[in-house]
Design a protein around this nucleic acid. Sequence first.
RNA 1: GGCUGGGUAGCUCAGCUGGUGAGAGCGCACGACUCAUAAUCGUGAGGUCGAGGGUUCGAUCCCCUCCCCAGCUACCA
Length: 521
Amino acid sequence: MPRFFLTTAIDYANGEPHLGHALEKVGADAIARFHRQLGYDVHLLIGMDEHGQKVAQTAEKQGMPPQQFVDNIAAIFQAMWKRLGVSYDQFIRTTSPEHKDAVRRLIEQIFAADAKLPEAQRNFYERSYTGLYCVGCESFKQPADIVDGKCAVHPTRTLEEVTEHNWFFRLSAYTDRLKQLFADQPSFLQPDSRRNEILQLLEQGLDDISASRSRFDWGVPFPRPLSGGDTQTTYVWFDALPNYWTARFFPGFEQKAAWPANLHVIGKDITRFHTVIWPAMLMAAGEPLPAQVWAHGFISLGGERFSKSAGVKLTLDEAIDRYGVDAFRYYLLRDVPYDGDGSFSWERFEEVYNSDLANTLGNLASRSIAMIEKYRAGVVPSVTPEPELSTAHQAALAQARAAVDGDRRHRPHEAIAALMDNARRTNEYIQRTQPWALAKDPANAAALDVVLATLASSIAHCAAWLAPIMPHKMQALWQQLGGAGDVAAVRLDSPIDVGGWKVTKGDPLFPKPEPPAKAAQ
RNA sequence: GGCUGGGUAGCUCAGCUGGUGAGAGCGCACGACUCAUAAUCGUGAGGUCGAGGGUUCGAUCCCCUCCCCAGCUACCA
């Protein structure tokens, strides 16, 4: 059984989960679920990035120890992922002792490699960094952030020239190897739009980055003191990014999270960290690289971006409550291309819900099951489905497969488009064959058998293929069809034989919301 | 400023290396049907294919200029 180890970005524990987080997790979850149903041994890793100055500050403002603060946040995130049906196999937290130990191990591994290198080539070295420091932001400012010699965020404050002595990582030495990586392995970073950006960045050359900081201590102590004797705190690159690699040092996950990962799912804003810094770190440590990084786009709300640190205007609970978890998942995955950006609006959500879910899919199931009950006492005839529709059907499934596991992989929205096409085509088939007319004359019994079997087959395939998108609703549909067991266990790469299944019409899968109460005249 | 990718029907978008009538879904209008969640099916509406030049027998797809939009341009994560 081939394994498929995928990860999402770990979320910064500095606020509550919002739409942007949800898009990434639900997308990665769909990818994971599709792979499970295609026979992969899947391991989905998600988690929290809980260190750093901002977390420590926020905790302090709320008057609690940082660990307690991040414990609370982590619980909130996990509860939300459970609610959204994110089927993660491991939840990693950077404050875990296992992670912190493994971070030190990775750094020591690089030091060990350095011991064999001439000093001028060593990955880690000490260096003084002088920069303009904004007291208001409590951080160094880059030229782009400086307006008229002042910090753009705090124009009334004077920027101070501050010198800090840190451990540095010789990222600059990896420029050529990274270029080679991108040339040899075009699929390492996808989609191509992101890849192009990084190629351009590499053309400009890379600067070294700091690996430790002195200004905060909420983090992993850097394993080696500076020559002056001070111990600093491991900076974010060497703390957060390694989580993918440290996951296997947690008890019980040695095999499941075995390195390297097959896929890192991340937001496009952190592409550079995952495709430049992270591979360079791994190269330095002599570790294999992940097979692929997928940088998804963003979802906006009312024109505002939902990056990791943006404000929240729509709570996830609100979005879920209106039409249910599965409808929300469907909307996110169908309307926001996973290789691009999209936006959220209630108008659009309603449109998609009514058109796709209630009218096309829900009603298709409803009418088909009703006819099987009415004309064949609920038993799906054991005959071969209509070849013409089956052929189109196979084409649609092949298209969906390509969007999951083929040359269009990691584009759940394309899989959905193919599957809904199939549902529409099935509705058309009903109209064309008019089973209600066939039912009027017993002489047409054989023809009617074929139509009904074709419908059941088509819908069963839809249920199985849409299960990764809408796990609960498709399970309900599967049961209405008379399918045995858990639809999530159904393999997508083998045909489903529905002959003899006993269907049961249940409540509508996607009920139309109550029409708005008539306003009193 | 530099670089990259875009601007196609009301909306969201397909249109591979240029060639009979520019497409899909949604929405809208009209018609059909009744198995179904007043759902479904069919037909249609006729969009200067961002603007202006150019190459070509012929360009939405090639070249030039311009306008507009988005992203990237490295230590908040």
